[in-house]
Design a protein around this nucleic acid. Structure first.
Length: 190
DNA sequence: CATGGGATTGACT
DNA sequence: GTCAATCCCATGC
């Protein structure tokens, strides 16, 4: 997808990414859950300003921001908004499409719904690591492409973001409501 | 240079 | 429901 897609308000991009396809080295899946982060709110890594870690977040849109979570997992984000604004969309869950056997062996589980139903799970299933930080999502190695027709009008619900303590009241999480591959149900109670 | 805190997951009570 | 694993990096001395 072109840079202009990402050079927009991060909430719009987060909603529009539902249904798009992530591919890495032969494994792919449809995005069914996202969260938006923006440097104006304290849950965003870019809230602290420009540092070596947040450099990619403040750079050109359409790049991957990959960070290590809890020392164990890698999490994949798409950088949004114009350069100078620190904003990104966290990819939280996929419905597996290609490379499913490789995903099973990487994950060590069988069920389709367990392969990519969480931000740490999907990076493990697709083999995405910290070396992919900063890569161009239009060129790879991690690529995000347009929605298949079947996903053009999939219903999307907004709810509160998961696993954060700051700015927890914002409903900046977006889910494909009919998907069975979400990290948690589409409607978290509030 | 030492410290502390996670945008998580899986195992266990 | 609780909890530990494990590492990057921001912060403070």
């Amino acid at each position: 997808m072109k840079r202009a897609f990402y050079e927009r308000p991060v909430l719009e991009v987060a909603r529009d990414l539902i249904g798009c396809v992530v591919t890495h080295e032969g494994c792919s899946g449809v995005i069914v859950e996202t969260e938006a982060y923006h440097d104006s709110e304290p849950a965003c890594h870019a809230f602290v300003g420009l540092t070596p870690r947040t450099q990619v977040l403040f750079g050109p849109p359409g790049r991957a921001y990959v960070y290590r979570s809890y020392g164990i997992h890698a999490c994949l984000n798409a950088v949004c908004e114009p350069p100078g604004v620190g904003a990104a969309v966290l990819i939280r869950a996929l419905e597996p499409v290609e490379g499913i056997e490789l995903m099973r062996s990487r994950r060590g589980v069988e069920r389709l719904e367990d392969l990519c139903s969480g931000p740490g799970k999907l990076t493990q299933a697709l083999g995405i690591e910290l070396v992919d930080n900063g890569c161009d999502l239009a060129r790879g190695p991690v690529v995000i492409a347009r929605k298949p027709r079947a996903w053009r009008h999939a219903p999307v619900a907004a709810s509160r973001r998961i696993g954060i303590t700051k700015a927890a009241e914002l409903e900046w999480r977006f889910c494909a409501v009919d998907s069975r591959c979400l990290s948690r149900p589409a409607l978290s109670r509030a």
